[in-house]
Design a protein around this nucleic acid. Structure first.
Lengths: 203, 203
DNA sequence: TGTTCAGGTAATCATTCGATAACAACCAAG
DNA sequence: CTTGGTTGTTATCGAATGATTACCTGAACA
């Protein structure tokens, strides 16, 4: 635990502090994976003490599930805002909404990593629920056909993989990485690239 | 550490023992994620002592990278065996090779999880290298077009996600899981479903 | 102006877990 | 046989880290 005598954090309503910690936690968990990050790192990123993080969320696991739930919730919110308008461009707008959310620190890696945690008893349930919500939204609210849904989700998973692997960092330097990105995002390479390198930036 | 007085493991050539441990480690890492599994669990799954696992591989991290390298290597091996024959059915045969490898304990979750670990300095390099090898194989040896490659990989990532989330098996009734599966694998639902539930079975 | 409670910290504990050391049995070669 | 390398073990350490406890402090309100 880092002992770092510091002026107490300025007073704040617990709800606001919670949101602030969730934002910081998203960034840290996103950069270092669930088990790889300590509650102390989250606390320092949020500018509070480690015990306070634990007290506000109960356990590290609960903190993480809160982060995941928030991420999926935000994602659906973005999708919903992209809904109205010409039905023709709906998929494009929703895709843009997705990449838009990527700009938020840690948001995408958290979502991407969550899909690999189905084996964890508690976290897995939350991750499945989040994914199911997305799927239902796409089918019911957005009205995608099965084939459209599959295509849309698959593209999202591909983005997740590319970001998860940090392949964007190798673009231009490594042949295969360059090729993968060119093949997967013929139109949007620049956009995807511009958004993602910052994923690991120190907090 | 589990103290469990046990008759010494029967003697074996170190190379064979290594392979045996790698197989066991694949199953355990696949079921519980990298940081979630202990070297002691791997050791017990392999029927040897924990310190011996560490000594054979140096560190837990090196053990895991060995597991990943082996997984991608096996995967390319399977793909290569599916290559000869009518070029028309090549993609189908390779897909079958993939799902075939899934039957091996932990193999798929290890590959799937590896794509989320690009942020780890050492493991990330290995994961990227493995993915790049697959990509190069698909382009160069299998001769897929960019669009075919993208489609092929995307489908694989979708499978990874579904398995990673454990949308199959016992959890299948929990959510719209069957719907996801039906939409994503209209032809192969039965096959995929039959293969995957066993991912987490106790070792 | 006292008092009460929410917001927050410092100190410390209890485990867990990867790693190390030291030792023991087996087998092959000279 | 005995000697040396290989295969393995038991015992134990040390660091990391999530959680707990006890305490402090500022403001709102009577």
């Amino acid at each position: 635990m880092t002992i770092e005598h510091v002026a107490p954090a300025p007073r704040m309503k617990a709800a606001d502090r919670r949101e602030l910690i969730l934002e910081a936690a998203t960034a840290v968990f996103g950069a270092k994976t669930y088990v790889g990050t300590t509650t102390d790192e989250v606390a320092r990123a949020a500018g509070v003490s480690q015990p306070y993080v634990v007290r506000l969320f109960g356990t590290k696991e609960k903190l993480f599930t809160a982060v995941i739930e928030r991420a999926y919730s935000r994602l659906i919110g973005e999708f919903r805002r992209a809904l109205p308008g010409d039905p023709e461009g709906r998929a494009e707008r929703m895709g843009a909404a997705y990449t838009g959310l990527l700009a938020e620190r840690g948001m995408l890696p958290v979502i991407a990593n969550s899909t690999a945690l189905g084996g964890e008893p508690v976290i897995g349930r939350v991750a499945r629920a989040g994914f199911s919500d997305i799927w239902r939204f796409i089918r019911d609210e957005a009205g995608f056909s099965p084939e459209e849904s599959r295509e849309f989700i698959a593209t999202g998973m591909l983005i997740n993989t590319i970001v998860g692997l940090r392949l964007t960092g190798d673009y231009g330097n490594e042949v295969s990485a360059t090729e993968v990105l060119d093949a997967c995002f013929p139109d949007a390479v620049a956009k995807v690239r511009a958004l993602l390198p910052q994923v690991d930036e120190p907090w």
